[in-house]
Computed example of a mutant assay.
Amino acid sequence: MRIEPTEFADVLVLVPDPFRDARGLFTRTFDAGEFDAHLGTPGAAAAFQQDSQSRSARGVIRGMHGRVGRGEAKLVRCANGAVHDVLVDIRPESPTFGHQQAFRLDDETFRHLYVPPGFLHGFQALTATADVCYRIDRPHDPTEDIGVAYDDAELAIAWPLPVTVVSERDAAAGSWQELLAALGRDPAPEVRGADSLG
């Protein structure tokens, strides 16, 4: 397994090396030893406590979601199909605060993301169905949920397909400016998008 950096400090792309033969393929999607060695933190992988999975139809958007408090770290991968996955940095002291980067996650390359606390996250399903698996480092607490509308004009996320379905919660999510106020940030820092997929 290869571990690659991204534009964001501490966000990593994990790239397995599937073994393919006449039967299909076999791949290791996570290796705690390699993960801990890369982070330089023995036992970091053991912090993951909860696995979840979503299934979405083509064009569905889930996002943009985050958490307040101490946040959550997560591993995100697409086990079936493909998604356009987007992160926005909301770490108050980060030099990339307000920046976004997109990643293609799919069942061909099995690339997946390690996302530390302090990011908004969302994705759009690119295939007839897309199964996304999440491994997080603490149980979900709905009282800590925050979000920004997937179609917020300032974020201006370039979703690749027409939007088919979003949840009521996501449709009613607040604006980037409302999130800045909630985070105690001055209004209107530059939001910068990524030109290509990471």
Rank of each mutant, 00 (worst) to 15 (best):
L12W: 15
V13A: 08
V13M: 11
V13K: 13
L14H: 11
V15R: 15
P16T: 11
P16G: 11
D17G: 11
D17I: 12
P18A: 08
F19L: 14
F19A: 12
F19I: 14
D21L: 05
D21P: 05
A22G: 11
A22L: 08
R23S: 01
G24K: 01
G24Y: 03
L25S: 13
F26N: 04
R28L: 14
R28N: 14
R28S: 14
R28G: 13
T29D: 14
F30H: 15
A32K: 14
D36Q: 10
H38F: 07
G40D: 06
G40L: 05
G40C: 05
T41P: 02
T41I: 15
P42I: 07
P42R: 08
G43R: 11
G43L: 10
A44D: 10
A44N: 09
A45I: 07
A46N: 13
A46E: 15
A47W: 12
F48E: 09
Q50I: 03
D51R: 12
D51S: 13
S52A: 12
R58M: 01
G59D: 04
V60K: 05
I61Y: 06
G63H: 02
G66R: 00
G66H: 00
V68S: 07
G69T: 04
R70E: 15
G71Y: 09
G71N: 05
G71D: 03
E72G: 03
A73I: 00
A73C: 01
L75Y: 04
L75G: 01
V76C: 09
V76S: 09
V76I: 15
R77E: 07
R77S: 15
A79K: 06
A79P: 02
N80E: 13
N80G: 07
A82H: 06
A82P: 06
A82T: 08
H84C: 14
D85P: 13
D85G: 14
D89L: 02
D89A: 02
I90N: 00
E93V: 00
S94G: 00
P95G: 05
G98Y: 00
H99A: 10
Q100D: 07
Q100S: 13
Q101M: 11
A102F: 08
F103K: 06
F103W: 09
F103A: 05
R104K: 14
L105N: 14
L105H: 14
L105W: 12
D107L: 07
D107C: 07
E108L: 10
E108V: 13
T109Y: 04
F110E: 09
F110T: 12
L113A: 12
L113W: 12
P116I: 09
P117Q: 03
G118I: 03
G118Y: 01
F119L: 04
L120Y: 03
L120W: 01
H121R: 08
G122Q: 09
G122H: 09
F123W: 14
Q124L: 10
Q124K: 11
A125T: 06
A125F: 08
T127Y: 00
T127C: 01
T127E: 08
T127D: 10
A128N: 07
T129E: 11
A130R: 04
A130S: 15
V132A: 04
C133R: 10
Y134H: 05
R135D: 03
D137V: 03
D137E: 08
H140S: 05
P142H: 00
